[in-house]
Simulated assay, not measured.
Amino acid sequence: MVKKQFNHRAAVIAGVTGGIISGLVKLGWENVLPPRTPERDQTNPPQQLLQQIGVPASLTHATYTYSGQQLPGVSYVMHFGFSTTFAVAYSIWARKHPQAKGGSSALYGLGVWTAFHHILLPALGTVPAAKDQPMAEHVSEGIGHVLWMWTADWVSEAVYDRMTRSK
């Protein structure tokens, strides 16, 4: 078996593609099992984090209208930025160290969820401590992060393979 040479450009493009599509999957999942109550989502974690660093609420809560609905534009920019950043990191890492995947990108997704929703965001005061978050939030976010990374991995794998396939 001939080992393919690592193609950094293809890994980044594959990660961006995987990050965008998996970000859509995560948004869809959150419509099925919303992670937060409507009250806790009035200012969602991305909006809260931006406000903590000084971005005014008038900007963090800015919306755009599509099909007669007000949608949180800034939250979507943060959501897809996060999704794409971590999907690109995974795409590069997993291709350089395929044995480290351990057979599943689910562990990476759970690791990102734990790092952010259980450690970093609570430490910053952006969200409550993990023990104070409702179980419904843990279920939605945990499963959502697994689905997010499975999708990012599958899509980025297909894109990378297509871009690096010998012609």
Rank of each mutant, 00 (worst) to 15 (best):
M1T: 13
K3T: 15
Q5I: 12
Q5E: 14
A11K: 07
V12P: 01
I13D: 05
V16E: 00
T17M: 02
I21W: 02
S22H: 05
G23W: 07
L24M: 11
L24T: 06
N31Y: 09
L33Q: 07
R36H: 10
P38H: 12
P38E: 09
R40A: 15
T43V: 14
Q47P: 08
L49T: 04
L50V: 04
I53W: 05
G54Y: 03
G54Q: 03
S58A: 13
S58Y: 01
L59G: 05
A62K: 10
T63D: 04
Y64D: 02
S67W: 06
S67T: 08
G68V: 08
Q69E: 14
Q70T: 13
P72G: 12
G73M: 13
V74T: 02
Y76F: 15
V77E: 01
V77L: 15
F80C: 01
F80W: 10
F86W: 14
S91P: 03
A94R: 12
R95K: 14
H97D: 11
Q99Y: 08
L107A: 12
V112P: 05
W113K: 03
W113S: 06
A115N: 02
H117M: 14
H117Y: 03
I119L: 13
A123N: 08
A123G: 09
L124R: 06
P128T: 03
A130L: 07
A130V: 12
A130N: 01
K131Y: 10
Q133R: 12
Q133I: 10
M135F: 15
H138I: 06
E141P: 04
L147Y: 05
M149Q: 08
M149A: 00
W150L: 15
S156T: 01
V159P: 00
Y160L: 00
Y160I: 05
M163R: 01
M163C: 06
T164Y: 07
S166K: 13
K167A: 15
K167Y: 05
